[in-house]
Design a protein around this nucleic acid. Structure first.
Lengths: 111, 111
DNA sequence: GCAATGTGTGACTGAATGGTCACATAATGA
DNA sequence: TCATTATGTGACCATTCAGTCACACATTGC
């Protein structure tokens, strides 16, 4: 997956209120199972929740590992951080931009 | 449009490489006309570019005003800033925190 | 007026998406 | 073994989206 595709996947994954609700749930308490996450979206079938989680996992925002017959879902903030750096800060966050510049400047000055 | 709808619209608008290219073009030089923006996406018809601009305008990322028979498009960073505050910074916090730590560490090491 | 230019509208098609269901697989425990 | 629990798979349908086209409208300059 190249850079543009990752941005596509992450923005697409975030462009749904159900998926953002799942991320919020995982943000509050990480490492949940599918059944626990179904409680977050009571108006949806288990299969719908599975599909949304699959979208989040394809975007790299959620990582999973199986434990016995359960599958635990964990939040992964790295892609969203890359997106924030590449696209968000440019348009809206001069603070973060300045921070990145500062880090780069200091790294070079200490090298 | 309530808060969730705005987030949906903004993320959806950003979830396309053509639309991000249009935003980049407007970021480089603001106030372009439709014909000028068509040059940015040479592999697309004028109507396709119009639709993408309509999506960006519906999301509030682009504002327009007509001048004679031309229509000028301007970048509006306000919605993207709101989205960043509400959704991005929350998840990218470990990322930002790591940057802050790095900056602080390097600052101390150079002092 | 009239041609040229810049933009807008409605309809259309192919593809993707959201959500559901019947059914299947895998692991736990009595 | 056998029932229960947790998750997975493939197909299915309604809706939406991306992109294009024929056509229409509005403004400028001659």
């Amino acid at each position: 997956m190249n850079e543009g595709d990752e941005a596509d996947a992450v923005f697409r994954a975030l462009a749904d209120v159900s998926r953002r609700a799942l991320l919020d749930a995982l943000f509050q308490r990480d490492g949940r199972t599918l059944g626990e996450l179904c409680v977050v979206l009571p108006d949806m079938t288990r299969f719908g929740v599975m599909k949304h989680l699959a979208v989040l996992e394809a975007a790299g925002l959620v990582v999973t590992h199986k434990v016995g017959r359960t599958k635990l879902h964990h939040l992964n903030p790295v892609p969203i951080g890359r997106i924030a750096d590449r696209w968000i800060s440019k348009y809206a966050q001069p603070f973060t931009r300045a921070l990145l510049d500062l880090a780069g400047h200091l790294e070079r000055s200490t090298a």
